[in-house]
């Protein structure tokens, strides 16, 4: 007999690229919130762990006509044919049916990194090193999030610990559904420009659903068919054209993300 069925939601995010200044607050807030340790000495942008990462993209033109945009990329929380989930050999990745959040279970992960090869957004990060904080700094770890061990993959999970907290708060007041104000991921809270909006995409009253349905909204690599739950906004056409490669662009050499 099943007695409790959690109210279902489909959490999603909308990031306004016209407001992002590339300051990196989201990256840092995410790392603080999720107990991501500081990088080791010889860490690089290819071996580090940044669940939320800001890329600089441009329109492919050269000086002085270049236009650039800052693009924060984290796990896009694919809703359909979730590439990472289907490839994991031991179910260490799952899509939570109640929230739509793509969860990564580090305790289950064996570190084969197949999911990383599968993810077109490069949103998954491998722990190449043991997690290590400077002496004493463990005291400044978030008690709500467990640190991960070396040799496993991790990624953004829309700050699941904050979802936990929101559920506890709801339970303590006898509510069945959580208060949307109680569940806000760290990057959303941290963005000084208020460029990120978070909420239930299935809730037609939510701000995030309205934004995602707007003319400025687009998603990256939408043609692959993974149905990400992270949307981006821009009123600039060339920025919206960054979404897919098929939108013909002349690439200049050595464009760095």
């Amino acid at each position: 007999m099943r007695t409790v069925t959690t109210a279902r939601s489909r959490y999603g995010m909308v990031i306004d690229l016209d407001r992002c200044t590339g300051c990196g607050s989201c990256t840092v807030a995410c790392s603080v919130e999720n107990n991501i340790p500081p990088g080791t000495e010889n860490v690089t942008e290819r071996t580090g762990i940044t669940w939320m990462r800001v890329y600089e993209a441009d329109d492919g033109k050269s000086f002085p006509d270049t236009h650039s945009v800052f693009v924060p990329i984290m796990c896009q929380q694919c809703g359909n044919e979730t590439p990472c989930m289907s490839v994991c050999p031991q179910n260490a990745v799952e899509v939570d049916p109640a929230t739509g959040i793509v969860g990564q279970i580090p305790e289950r992960c064996l570190g084969c990194r197949y999911c990383m090869a599968a993810c077109p957004y490069h949103a998954r990060y491998f722990n190449w090193w043991d997690p290590k904080w400077p002496a004493g700094m463990e005291a400044a770890m978030n008690p709500d999030v467990a640190p991960r061990m070396r040799g496993v993959v991790e990624k953004c999970n829309f700050c699941q610990s904050r979802l936990h907290t929101a559920r506890e708060r709801a339970a303590s007041t006898g509510r069945t559904a959580i208060d949307p104000a109680d569940y806000v991921p760290a990057c959303v809270e941290a963005c000084p420009q208020r460029a990120i909006t978070f909420g239930d995409l299935d809730d037609s009253d939510s701000f995030v659903a309205a934004l995602a349905a707007g003319d400025r909204a687009f998603r990256f690599l939408s043609r692959i068919g993974t149905e990400p739950k992270v949307w981006y906004l821009s009123s600039r056409e060339w920025v919206r054209n960054l979404s897919d490669r098929v939108v013909a662009r002349t690439r200049k050499e050595n464009v760095r993300g």
């Binding site: 007999m1 099943r2 007695t3 409790v4 069925t5 959690t6 279902r8 799952e94 899509v95 939570d96 049916p97 109640a98 929230t99 959040i101 969860g103 279970i105 305790e107 289950r108 709500d144 999030v145 467990a146 999970n157 699941q160 610990s161 979802l163 936990h164």
Partner: peptide, 14 residues
């Protein structure tokens, strides 16, 4: 498994 339809690892893991 008896009381909950939608189960997910992240319900109990942090």
């Amino acid at each position: 498994s008896v009381h909950n339809n939608d189960r997910a690892c992240i319900d109990c893991h942090k």
